[in-house]
Design a protein around this nucleic acid. Structure first.
Lengths: 149, 149
DNA sequence: GGCTATTCGGACTTTTAAATCCTTAATAGT
DNA sequence: ACTATTAAGGATTTAAAAGTCCGAATAGCC
């Protein structure tokens, strides 16, 4: 993967939150997604500090998005998780590599970076929700009787 | 960086080896490149097992390429270091992401992957040597008197 | 032919990321 | 006010990467 596992978990969790402003429990998210519970909880805390999630404690509490899902970009989440210069530097780690002294992968990688950056600023959490829904729907279509065999 | 630091070190070390079949000391390489000596040595060992380097122990020993530099591709080195499926899987770590259920970055990332893969199988260690030489030459041109001020 | 210096090879330690646990604080319902 | 519930935050553990150290092998010398 291009990013850390924590970033992947963050994106999956955000995509799994309900679209109405309902508060959702960390525990529910982790069990639904099959992710390590306490670890996910910590990641969610980070997203609260990044103003992507809001949280309330106590009964009926939980986490929810601070904005509608289509207003939160994937890039924003990645930046919050990985820091602003996650994709800087040479692909191969060549210190000498630069625009003036490009390594053999420099141009390909630059193209890649701008392409991925653009996609990340265009893609939103809403798009990830759609992926998830589509996936589940088709699984259901494949086996319409919920009982096995 | 897209790969581990070890992979970067491996590529830098290979590019720094002499083109004639002369054996070269791990220690020399590390001091020349400013890399942690024993760690580089371990990486070189791995490259020996991958049949990219040959080594002999004892005085006058060291490491050398098993083939001319233009016959060793960057991709081969990366595979040796990172394993064959270093670039598999979804960019964001979405398990549901696939060709049929693409995540919003799927196409951009697929394009990237094939682009980088192609570049990696075309680029050879020889190309990295050239980068290095060019870099040094220009540094020399900037300061023709080797003494500082 | 054995001795010694040199250099690789593999086991060992340190650091960092990933994941867990536990205590504290806040809130809703009783 | 009290209790149950849930996030917040720190302390701890585990796993993996990064980095270090000691023993095996070879060449040259006496």
């Amino acid at each position: 993967m291009l990013f850390s596992t924590a970033t992947g978990y963050a994106l999956r969790a955000l995509a799994a939150l309900p679209e109405d402003g309902t508060y959702c429990l960390a525990k529910d998210l982790s069990s639904r997604l099959g992710l390590p519970g306490p670890y996910l909880a910590k990641i969610l805390q980070g997203l609260v500090q990044a103003d992507i999630l809001a949280s309330v404690r106590g009964p009926k509490g939980g986490f929810r998005l601070t904005r509608p899902a289509h207003r939160i970009t994937v890039g924003e989440v990645v930046t919050a998780m990985e820091g602003p210069d996650a994709m800087d530097g040479c692909v191969m780690g060549f210190p000498a590599c630069s625009g003036e002294h490009p390594c053999p992968l420099h141009d390909a990688w630059s193209a890649v970076k701008s392409q991925v950056s653009t996609s990340m600023t265009e893609a939103t959490i809403r798009d990830l929700q759609l992926l998830d829904i589509r996936h589940k729907k088709e699984a259901k279509d494949r086996a319409p009787n919920s009982a096995q065999a």
